[in-house]
Design a protein around this nucleic acid. Sequence first.
DNA 1: CGACTTTGACCTGCGC
DNA 2: GCGCAGGTCAAAGTCG
Length: 338
Amino acid sequence: MPVINLYMEEKVQDLKNENQPMMANSTFSDQIPTSFAFPGIFDMPCDYNEKGSFDLGFMDILGFQDYYCTTSNSTPSSLFDLIQTPPVVPSPASTSEVVNTPATPNSTSISSSSTEAANDHDQIKATKVEQDEEGEQEKTKKELLKPKKKNQKRQREPRFAFMTKSEVDHLDDGFRWRKYGQKAVKNSPFPRSYYRCTTPACGVKKRVERSSDDPSIVVTTYEGTHTHPCPVTPRGSIGIMPETAAFGGGVGGGASSFIFPTPHYQQQPPYIQNQTPTTSLSFSTTTNTSSSSFPTFFQDRRFCPSSSSDSLLRDHGLLQDMIVPSHVQKELKEEWKE
DNA sequence: CGACTTTGACCTGCGC
DNA sequence: GCGCAGGTCAAAGTCG
């Protein structure tokens, strides 16, 4: 059974370099960019706010946790059935690479114009086609890639990372992925694997690595947005409605992605009361946002018709497995008292 | 045979 | 400019 920690990342290495617990000292919701296509996620009530406590945002997350319970009772890897991939970021002028710098909330996000990143691959290919005619195949590989950008910084899609406690490295999130690379990571005995969505025209990527600090924790980082609905998996664990699938994409066409119903937050879902105060769902970012629909999304997911109905009723105490930094636990306890 | 994984080489960005 | 580390490519291998 996976333990999950959800957060936005700026740089993956932050995860490894940070000695401090995740999300330490961070204040999220007030730092999200309004331009971020995933508006609500950081603004959710689970806000680790100034008061030093969660306003309850993760309550909503619990909703998706419920979903998780139902769709993946037999496998620890389906949490992502709920979450899918990161929202699309409509290439904001000043980047919006999502940041996950728990211990360094003020760290600046990587500056990038996400548009290029999305086009890099195609650009390269186009370049290759053009130059193949020259016939000098020896140089093809090296030279063809050069045009790629000498003066242009590589742009990256916003990233969205999860920490999942699981023995399985590659978690099944409902989408089909092709591994295209693996690299040893400095200061970590575990290699990092690179996956790309196999759907044509969908440039979503994800990296999977194990935490060097805790090998049982798998860090999955999504980059980009799916431009297609989530394919149905054989075991039918997905059950994502087209509109909800947009969570992971839908951007293609700019359409449906992350347009959620008007948010309405539950203040204290009853079921959370039954959970041990060990649940932490953290989001971190360095930009601002004012709207909040992400929570609603999670709530909606709870009622996703495509998932087994009983899933809505079962919680199984899975929340207990969610990773919770000690400082958060303390805060949560305090909140429970109130 | 297609889809996927493995893996070494290569490219890019960044710090010194 | 150099070296390092992260990220990507693509040929070869594997699997169903």
